[in-house]
Design a protein around this nucleic acid. Structure first.
Length: 272
DNA sequence: AAACGAATCAACCGCTACTCT
DNA sequence: GAGAGTAGCGGTTGATTCGTT
């Protein structure tokens, strides 16, 4: 409390010169946890001052929300969570905090990091922009159904949709203004057809004039992952998200649908 | 074992929105 | 309505960890 009085009476510029940055120590964490327990998790500047921590309110808030909060969930992103992130990002874009509301215990920062490190890496592998229609449609019509397959393989219900199960749950904080796409791709049998539809869509998109499906075809079929003997184009997509077998793609998993579509069906489309 | 590059993630920064006076 | 203070969000950075050679 002594520090509180001192800091309240100190001019702002003096506090600024004394502000601490960088990683938090265990002692700082303990102090912050104690003060939040007493004062609640609001009025962060007040907490920062009254605790005696030489941190800004912003820094305290971030530390609490991303690390110290008791319900914060740490560890690998599960398949369901991966699916949720992909799905919700397709709806809302980089609205990380909003997406985080549907992933209990996960922080916006964690989701943002996941997206940047894992998802954008896949875009890099495909050599297309993460915001391009090509990438979005590939994600929506290929990767997400694939994830769904794996989720369903883990759960008894063959049609379980982790996103719909949350979005239709009245107990969840749903933004009713947000349109939810009906009938999202969930049936593995429809992969090929829907991917072709998506390919057609993105190939004719004005948003990615420089990027054509054949460009990606070249990369898949002629890239390092092409297996001439097996006639199977595959990408090195085995490093999604989780460790210990929870990756979206297993080792050497073929991107058979891409190869199949590229080699046999895409000729029926014209790419402008 | 060491060096190096890649991947990860905690934390910071700048901006905007909101609230209060 | 204006301005100050604060909270929250998304983008970015940099230290650390991990994997490879």
């Amino acid at each position: 409390m002594e520090n509180y009085e001192q800091n309240l009476n100190s001019p702002a510029h003096e506090e600024d010169s004394d502000v601490r940055k960088g990683p938090w120590t265990e002692e700082e964490d303990a102090i912050l946890v104690n003060f939040v327990a007493i004062h609640g998790d609001a009025r962060w500047n007040h907490i920062a001052r009254s605790s005696g921590l030489k941190r800004t309110g912003k820094s305290c808030r971030l530390r609490w929300l991303n690390y110290l909060r008791p319900d914060v969930r740490r560890g690998n992103i599960t398949l369901e969570e991966q699916f949720m992130i992909l799905k919700l990002h397709s709806l809302w874009g980089n609205r990380w905090s909003k997406i985080a509301q549907y992933l209990p215990g996960r922080t916006d920062n964690e989701i943002k990091n996941y997206w940047r490190t894992r998802v954008q890496k896949q875009a890099k592998h495909l050599r297309c922009d993460v915001n391009s229609n090509l990438f979005k449609e590939t994600m929506k019509n290929v990767w997400m159904p694939r994830l769904m397959e794996r989720i369903n393989a883990q759960t008894p219900s063959p049609t379980y949709d982790p996103v719909e199960s949350v979005i239709t749950d009245p107990g969840q904080p749903i933004d009713k203004q947000t349109p939810v796409e009906p009938g999202f791709v969930l049936n593995p049998d429809q992969h090929r057809h829907q991917f072709v539809q998506a390919s057609e869509l993105c190939a004719t998109s004005s948003n990615s004039p420089a990027e054509t499906l054949s460009d990606v075809q070249d990369r898949v079929v002629n890239g390092s992952g092409y297996d001439p003997a097996g006639q199977t184009g595959f990408l090195e997509l085995n490093d999604w998200g989780c460790d210990d077998g929870d990756n979206m793609w297993t080792d050497d998993e073929s991107f058979w649908f891409l190869q199949d579509q590229f080699c046999h069906e895409t000729t029926s489309f014209s790419y402008n």
